[in-house]
Computed example of a mutant assay.
Amino acid sequence: MKIKLNDTKYSKEIKKTHELKIGTFFFFEKFIVAEINEGENVNWGNCQELIKLAIDFYPNEIKVNYISNRINEYSVSPADWLKFLKNVNRIKNYYIVCSSKSSFTNLIFEKLFFKKRIYQTNSLQTAIAKCLEQEKNQFTNP
């Protein structure tokens, strides 16, 4: 079931919200939740503003967790996906929340290029809980 971040208990913990042309991005202390707009084509050019905002919000080369809450159908430019991964090495963990057939197709494609593990779930709450648990375990398990 597709649930927007603002309809969850986690909406109270948002530190900053950015509504860009390609979608809405919610910045938390340890992660970003992205909700891309219907029909968008995500590419290197339209991600530049998001990248700058993230670098400003998470200073000092801090790596951040990224949760893609796929509530809408959109596409990703394959060549630009490679460019993004080559030039932006600040993603610690990547979580994808998807339930539609096309979202699963995109997930398979992304797994070809993203060398770290991609965590997939059909629940935004589960993705956030796993992200927070991993962050907690990172500091309690040396």
Rank of each mutant, 00 (worst) to 15 (best):
Y119S: 05
I62K: 14
I32P: 12
N37T: 04
F31W: 03
I3Q: 13
F104G: 02
D80K: 14
R90N: 08
F27N: 09
F114N: 12
N122Y: 08
E38C: 00
N60V: 01
N87A: 03
D56I: 08
L112G: 13
N65S: 05
S99I: 05
E13Y: 13
D7P: 07
P78A: 02
S123T: 04
F27E: 02
G45F: 09
Y74D: 06
A127H: 03
V42C: 07
K4V: 00
M1D: 10
F109T: 10
K30E: 10
I71Y: 11
C131N: 12
E135W: 01
E29H: 12
E35Y: 05
V88Y: 15
Q138K: 05
P142V: 01
F27C: 04
Q138N: 07
Q138F: 12
N69T: 06
N46Y: 05
K130Q: 08
S11Q: 07
I128V: 13
I108E: 12
R117L: 00
M1K: 15
L50A: 07
S100D: 12
F139G: 01
Y95L: 03
N141S: 06
I67G: 14
F109Y: 10
L112Y: 11
K86G: 00
E35A: 02
I67C: 11
I71P: 06
F26T: 06
W81G: 03
N60Y: 14
K92D: 14
Q120V: 13
A34C: 15
F113S: 09
N137K: 14
T24Q: 01
T140F: 08
N122E: 05
E40V: 11
N122A: 02
K92W: 07
S75D: 13
E73D: 15
N60A: 09
I51H: 08
H18V: 00
I32K: 10
D56C: 04
P59Q: 14
F109C: 04
E133F: 02
L124W: 13
E133P: 02
S99L: 02
Y119A: 01
S11H: 08
K115R: 12
H18W: 02
D56M: 12
F114T: 14
V42Y: 02
E35N: 02
N43C: 11
A34F: 06
N87E: 11
K21Y: 09
L82N: 09
N60R: 15
V33D: 07
N43I: 01
D7N: 15
L82F: 09
Q125Y: 05
K116A: 02
R117P: 03
E135Q: 12
Y74R: 13
N60I: 01
E29A: 12
